[in-house]
Amino acid sequence: MSIRKSISKNVAITIICLILGLMIALQYRSINYNESVSSYQNMREEVLKEELIKLQRSNADLRTKLQEMEEELRSYQTAQAGSKEVYDNLQKELDNMRIFAGLTDVKGKGLIITVEDDFFTVIGTDILAIVNELKAAGAQAISINDERYVAMTEIRDAPPYIMVNGVQMTSPFTIKAIGDPEQLEHSLKMAYGVIEKLDDYYKITIKTSDEVIIPKVRDDGTVIKTNLLNPVTSN
């Protein structure tokens, strides 16, 4: 074999090796790219599916509500003077609104949580975090030291006190919540959850109860203020 032949052969092999290397690299990249594209699309699909299910559910709710309203309307149209049905309907509506606004004492299954000064003095922001977690877990009524938490309730630090609905309070704080006890407890106690974080600072106890009683908010115009609110008449 001549030297020249062997050189040309080596060159050929080198070139082929180079091309092969290039192709492997390309292949690797294209597989990676495909994976990332499809995982992005899957994510978008998941989000959309979730949204769709939620919309379908809430629309079903709206349809039921519409049906109820239709019946109610019909009852007003055909009602005789002094109809008990009309009166009862409105009374029910009023009662429901009072419960929703926090103007009625209520009871139900739920959770009683106490938070007490330990290594640190309890601050309002942490009470607020617990209250928020309870709301996210489906609580329907909450009180802090028997002050009902309503729409415009503040939890304000004013050392050495915490003010709730303008009422001064100090440790220990008793937070009551009505809702599914298991769900409430689970969401407070979950890993990296709010209790795990606060447990190092304060003394915290959590107790489920079959009958949590939550008092109404005082209705003397100091908590629920409406003097600056006007109903919108035109848009």
Binding site: D61, N96, I99, D105, V106, G108, Q140, I178, D180, I213
Partner: peptide, 10 residues
């Protein structure tokens, strides 16, 4: 109604 369905009036 759903927002208050677990509440019973005292």
């Amino acid at each position: 109604t759903r927002a208050i369905n677990k509440l019973e009036v005292v």
